[in-house]
């Protein structure tokens, strides 16, 4: 029984991991684009971008998942997400990417705006180009400042993936719960917690290392 449960939960966890990894893959860079938009000097860019960030950060991810999954079908009368498990997974991924890129964008914005203007000016008077100033001076300082908040957000994402079950993405908790109905046992549900703990533990160690690597300067 233990092996069966482990095997089933692993299958669910694989789905969790896929959602986790793909969300990061798309949301980390997209967040940067959004942060540039939210810092734009042009009001026609800045205002709508900040409005969207407000909507996304101000409503539950659960609600966003439902709207993104069901919305197109109801409004356009066509299922843009494709049928079956694959379609639901894509819908979930899209919702996660939108949600997390907005959160990341605010972290990037905070990081970039926290760099003292003197750093830019020092680069300028030394004849550096805008590019050189960003890549050679500002970027690493920004990274150092955003690692702790990003790490927070990433660990939250590990657990948030479980929300995908509301549109029937068979992630690990869904699988664990299925044993309650199917076999009348509850311990697999607790077992899923072990997967989360181990994985978030690994991430904590990883981010701790990155922080330490960047601790050589202040």
């Amino acid at each position: 029984m233990f092996l069966t449960v482990t095997w089933t939960l692993l299958g669910g966890f694989l789905q969790t991991l896929r959602l986790f990894a793909l969300t990061l893959l798309f949301a980390l860079p997209l967040g940067l684009v959004i942060s540039f938009g939210s810092m734009s000097r042009l009001r026609i860019i800045k205002t709508p971008v900040r409005f969207v960030i407000w909507i996304i950060r101000g409503t539950p991810l659960m609600l966003q998942l439902l709207v993104i999954y069901y919305g197109p079908g109801i409004i356009l009368h066509s299922n843009v997400w494709g049928s079956g498990d694959g379609g639901r997974f894509v819908a979930a991924l899209v919702a996660f990417v939108i949600n997390y890129s907005c959160y990341f964008s605010e972290i990037y914005r905070g990081g970039i705006q926290s760099i003292p203007v003197g750093q830019y000016e020092a680069g300028q008077v030394l004849g550096m180009t805008k590019h050189q100033i960003f890549y050679k001076i500002v970027l690493l300082q920004v990274i150092k400042r955003i690692v702790p908040p990003i790490s927070n957000e990433v660990i939250t994402l590990v657990k948030d993936t479980s929300l995908a079950r509301v549109i029937a993405v068979y992630e690990i908790i869904w699988e664990g719960q299925s044993f309650i109905k199917g076999a009348g046992i509850i311990w697999p549900l607790f077992y899923t917690g072990v997967f989360y703990l181990v994985f978030s533990g690994l991430l904590t160690v990883l981010f701790g290392r990155i922080e330490k690597k960047l601790s050589y300067f202040r």
Partner: peptide, 20 residues
């Protein structure tokens, strides 16, 4: 960028690059 190279500037707050 070219013109300002005639001048160097030392700031009140140093503005050294911390990672170097």
């Amino acid at each position: 960028r070219k013109k300002r190279l005639h001048f160097g500037l030392v700031f009140q707050s140093f503005n050294l690059f911390p990672q170097y």
